[in-house]
Amino acid sequence: MTAAAVTLIVCFLVLTLVCVKPVGLYMANVFDGRPIWALRTGAPLEHWIYRLCGVDIRREMSWQQYTIGLLVFNLIGALAVYALQRLQVWLPLNPQKFAALTPDSAFNTAVSFATNTNWQGYSGESAMSYLTQMLGLAVQNFLSAASGIVVAIALIRGLARHSADTIGNVWVDLTRSTVYVLVPLALVLAIALVSQGVIQNFSAYKDVSMAEALTYQQPKTDAAGNPLRDAAGHPVQETLTTHAQTLPMGPIASQESIKELGTNGGGFLNANSAHPYENPTALSNLLEMLAILIIPAALTYTFGRMVGDTRQGWAVYAAMTILFVSMVSIACYNEQRGNPLIARLGVDQAASPLQPGGNMEGKEARFGIAASALFATVTTSTSCGAVNSAHDSYTPLGGFVPLFNMQLGEVVYGGVGTGLYSMLIFAIVGVFIAGLMIGRTPEYLGKKIEAFEMKMSSIAILVMPFIVLVGTAAAVSMSAGQGAVGNPQAHGFSEILYAFTSASNNNGSAFGGLSPNTLFYNSALGLCMWLGRFWPIVAVLAVAGSLAAKKRIPVSDGTMPTHGVTFVILLIGTVLLVGALTFVPALALGPIVEHLMLWARA
């Protein structure tokens, strides 16, 4: 790695660390309902929302009521997004007169945005009206992020309370996380992004003449959108020439800010954060990366604060940071190392003051290798899925990092809420394993971990690998799955594995190369997104309810400390073992074999 890369990563980690305590403390105060300035100021709005919706804020909920409320809320969100897409041609704010999306694409996108996945089978600037983008997609960016946060808060309450039948009120938690956390942060970030050049308007698209004609190649597709192939199985390319360019417009900054803060990731434009209208400068890139991590990282402090021992939160934060640094180092090193086949042609791939060196394919020149690899790690270790470079063009081991980050369950800071609750489930499994080793009843934060918690934790952890592996196996076995793959051999397998991993983990980033806007992929990935989001949530909230009902055991000599180095190592080991052992066979068929084939030819 270059010195510039190390400096960028260290500065980024320090900036994140600086934000953890103030933001985490603020969120703890919000969800504990303490009389802070923000809650006093927002009280009229908050109580107006409750009156409008008929919410009784004094009514606490059991875990079942809390879960059903959350599920109904997200179902209504998905139905609304579906309706908007199908009706957009008759609705206002559609200057380009975009037609309604196909039913399967609308289904996929509705599930995608209601589940915080934001997988995009469509191209935003050529399919979605401004109304659909704002009222459908951006609103879901807020609400799905709030849904993730409230599950984490409910689990924290389960750990913090004792002998309680309830875990909070889902409507109050959803309202507070939206009104006091997401909206203010998104507003500040949107203004900061506009200052960097991110656009915000309702203008129709602008056609401009180019100074010189541009000739380019693109894969030829059939009527269903699948790439056509020649007799050897390679994609057929068509050569096109253009003299004009259409510049997309739209309310991008407002959607960009919540896209990052809510770890949603669905871009207004198809190129996502690689497009200069979404991410124009190095500073906007840094702000966007920081925005992705700020809430997931700060929630660890919120956790420590709400359970009455901030050391617990710092231990979880430390485990996440160690994993993060390891992953970003692998990505940066391999991208800077470059492609050996290109080096064999005599191309200089060493970094120098005149060039970034390494593998620059698929990366924006204004970001370079380190800022691209760091962004890729940030976006896939959380459940964001925004991209500022083409993950498909990374070296095999560079591309392995985003894939493996997601397969770990996105617990390295993770998505807003999802990262913390998934990591706490791993902590429960970790103390259970430690309890087995030392022959004591496992306990976490004074709560006995018994059969029910372990069954629920197992469900929460195993749902994702099950649907990823079954989905990938089904896709590679069926012609409908194979037909959308743009590259042959191991890389093509990686593209399918990446798609199912991304959908099932509610990440939403794409490896590229795959043309997934087909009936098969829209339906299959839609199913994976729903199951990968809500089935673990049900199990996590069941754990929350069960833990809240338990008595707290006082700390004794036999209690395993869960704020020390030993616990951090145990937690990292549990995450790695579960993630690695589940996915190593699939990874061996994809990026690992591709790496070996590449370097064998060097």
Partner: peptide, 30 residues
Amino acid sequence: MDVIFILALLVLYAATHCLVVALARLGEPE
């Protein structure tokens, strides 16, 4: 087709609702 995909959303919700009920029963004391 719209009916099929709206029904698919409702079926996904119903399946998840059933999971809540099943896990709640699993957690009840015997």
